[in-house]
């Protein structure tokens, strides 16, 4: 019990540290591809600390609530995802919980964005919803494929099953590829950074955030990076102990970064078309194969 309580407190902290490390690393790696040196890895953390100390403008109660909601959703979600075997709140049906909890973050953003009443935000929200609509389909298919294959709705079970034998990616290559293909969309990086597209809708949903709100969104983003990648590692790469798990996450993240670095942004209609085309078909085929076998 004590271990559980401690892990409930520690795990989000670890997730936060890893998330910020990834944020910093992404800037460094991308800078190198840009032929720059880039800022120090601690830069995102410094930014957040600075932002917290800044004056912040609120647009009303719902505005505040939305930000907190999306952050809280992410923190809870972290507790459901096994990290090196530690999953404090893991239950038998946690994959289903994850699917629902993942919707909390965009919901919170939409809530606060609606209060801000900036046309850019509303376009951003509509884009976010549309994009979510796009990537949720292949996401669900690949989750279903995993669930069918291992005949369980518990993520811990999935991980355990993989650790005893081969990783799921070898049994279910198609859903794994499909998941990886939509990973940039889930992370909101190029070519799918349509939601925040600064050059089109002035950072969209983030346009009204300042000071503490921006800091909270950044923290939420750090959690979000952790969750999406950790989920992939858990589902297809067999989890692992603390170290191997982190290394696997790093590899997946770097692959995502490379995609981020070499592609321009897509238009929303192209993005949805893409999501519903290749990843969805792959994941569906994978699901069918998993079902048949």
């Amino acid at each position: 019990m004590i271990i559980k309580v401690i892990s409930i407190i520690v795990l989000p902290l670890i997730a936060l540290i890893i998330g910020f490390f990834f944020l910093g690393l992404s800037r460094k790696v991308i800078a190198r591809i840009h032929r720059r040196y880039g800022p120090p890895i601690s830069q995102p953390l410094i930014d957040v600390i600075k932002l917290i100390n800044q004056e912040s403008i609120s647009h009303g109660k719902l505005f505040d609530m939305g930000v907190i909601l999306s952050l809280a959703g992410s923190v809870i979600l972290v507790l459901f995802i096994p990290f090196g075997g530690i999953a404090p709140l893991a239950t038998s049906g946690d994959l289903l919980v994850i699917i629902y909890l993942m919707l909390l973050a965009p919901l919170g953003v939409a809530l606060s964005g609606g209060e801000a009443a900036n046309p850019n935000v509303s376009i951003g929200i509509s884009r976010k919803m549309m994009l979510a609509l796009g990537y949720e389909v292949p996401f669900l298919f690949s989750l279903l494929a995993v669930m069918t294959w291992y005949k369980t709705t518990s993520l811990v079970e999935v991980v355990k099953a993989q650790q005893s034998f081969l990783w799921a990616i070898f049994y279910l290559p198609l859903p794994a590829v499909a998941y990886f293909m939509i990973l940039p969309a889930m992370l909101g990086i190029r070519p799918f950074d349509i939601v925040s597209a600064p050059q089109e809708i002035a950072s969209g949903t983030a346009v009204e955030y300042g000071g503490r709100y921006l800091a909270l969104t950044t923290i939420q983003h750090a959690f979000h990076i952790f969750i999406d990648i950790a989920l992939f590692v858990n589902l297809f790469l067999g989890g692992g102990n603390l170290l191997t798990f982190f290394v696997k996450m790093l590899v997946v993240f770097l692959l995502g970064l490379f995609i981020n670095a070499v592609f321009p942004r897509l238009r929303i209609d192209q993005a949805i078309k893409y999501c519903w085309k290749w990843p969805a078909i792959l994941a569906l085929v994978g699901l069918i194969i998993a079902r048949i076998i």
């Binding site: 790696v29 190198r32 032929r35 720059r36 040196y37 490379f258 670095a261 070499v262 592609f263």
Partner: peptide
């Protein structure tokens, strides 16, 4: 083709500190 750009990850940056 665009992944060719990754090679610059391993080259010395050109900016000044």
């Amino acid at each position: 083709g665009p992944f060719k750009a990754i090679k610059y990850l391993f080259k010395k940056p050109v900016t000044l500190r």
